[in-house]
């Protein structure tokens, strides 16, 4: 199966317990403490049940009519003490730490406290990213500078999705008609995987994204490049590919800035070749995969909105050559 080959080596993990930012670290630490306390609670209850098992059958069969409530008074102390007072204290402590302290370090940042804003737009089934103030538009791969407070604005083009990069912060849903925000921050450069977390239809499973954290200088270079219009094709084959793209059905769904292609159903392809993955992290961005994707995208991602166009081998070849040139 081709599917078996996919995604190995796409990089990045999405482990909530492997935090790479202070918000994610706060949440992970909170979890470890909660887990320790929980195991204590579970051990206590299990201990009581085992204790009862050890002492099973110690009296003869049947209730004692003279003493229908053996040990009732001490039991009340346990029920009220362990069942009301103790859990109340634990829950209040958790509430104060979780919803008083950690909530403020992880929630949507005040507008003035962030250095830049990124728009994440959920589509069935890929993520589009825009950098307000520039013309840069990309898909599937979000670049941000390291140690910078980023104000991420999550919106949707269709149904509810959820923006989630577990190693950087908690998730936030994209609700039609609303702009939900979350703080994005990374301590170190690296590649962090994220995924749509709210069920959004057939290909919910293939709606991944990579957050690529770069040094500030690298990021500035990247953003400048992404803001520029698409590179013109240089070879004859690529020019033929551009012709097919612009004249054929491709341009009605995809945009390539600097050309007449202005579709908005599928991802923006202006700098397609600068990305490492395709189709919401479904396949790596290599010429062979791209060609197979164009021929039969339904094979990789059944139900996605790109139909089969019955292109000839030659046309596909030309298209790939054109798209591979969009650095």
């Amino acid at each position: 199966m081709l599917l078996l080959l996919t995604l190995a080596g796409c990089g990045g993990s999405q482990n909530t317990l492997n935090p790479h930012s202070h918000p994610a670290a706060d949440i992970a630490n909170l979890f470890w403490v909660m887990m320790a306390v929980s195991f204590g609670g579970l051990a206590l209850i299990t201990g009581l049940l085992v204790f009862a098992w050890v002492r099973r059958g110690r009296r003869g069969f049947g209730a004692d009519p003279d003493d229908p409530h053996p040990g009732e008074r001490p039991s009340w102390f346990v029920v009220v003490g362990m069942g009301v007072v103790f859990p109340l204290m634990v829950v209040i402590a958790l509430f104060v730490v979780g919803n008083g302290v950690i909530i403020s370090s992880t929630q949507a940042p005040a507008a003035s406290s962030t250095a830049m804003t990124v728009d994440a737009i959920g589509h069935q089934w890929y993520w589009a990213f825009r950098y307000p103030g520039t013309k840069a538009v990309t898909a599937g791969e979000l670049h941000i500078p390291v140690r910078t407070r980023v104000n991420l604005v999550a919106t949707t083009a269709d149904v509810i999705h959820s923006f989630w990069v577990p190693e950087l912060n908690r998730k936030v849903d994209t609700i039609p008609g609303r702009q939900n925000r979350i703080l994005l921050y990374a301590n170190t450069p690296g590649v962090f995987r994220g995924q749509c977390a709210e069920y959004c239809g057939l290909q919910h499973a293939h709606m991944g994204m990579l957050v690529i954290v770069q040094s500030k200088a690298q990021f500035r270079t990247w953003l400048a490049k992404q803001s520029a219009p698409a590179a013109a094709p240089t070879t004859a084959l690529a020019r033929h590919g551009e012709q097919i793209f612009l004249d054929g059905p491709c341009a009605s769904c995809h945009a390539i800035r600097g050309t007449s292609a202005r579709g908005f159903v599928g991802p923006d392809l202006t700098h397609l070749a600068s990305r490492t993955t395709l189709a919401g992290l479904t396949i790596p961005n290599r010429a062979d995969y791209l060609a197979r994707w164009i021929v039969d995208s339904q094979h990789f991602k059944p139900g996605n909105q790109m139909p089969d166009f019955n292109l000839s081998q030659r046309q596909v070849h030309a298209l790939v050559a054109y798209l591979e040139g969009l650095k």
């Binding site: 909530t16 949440i27 829950v91 979780g98 909530i103 577990p166 908690r170 998730k171």
Partner: peptide, 9 residues
């Protein structure tokens, strides 16, 4: 009930 953790998992 710890909202940040809830929103993570």
């Amino acid at each position: 009930l710890a909202v940040p953790f809830d929103q993570q998992v």
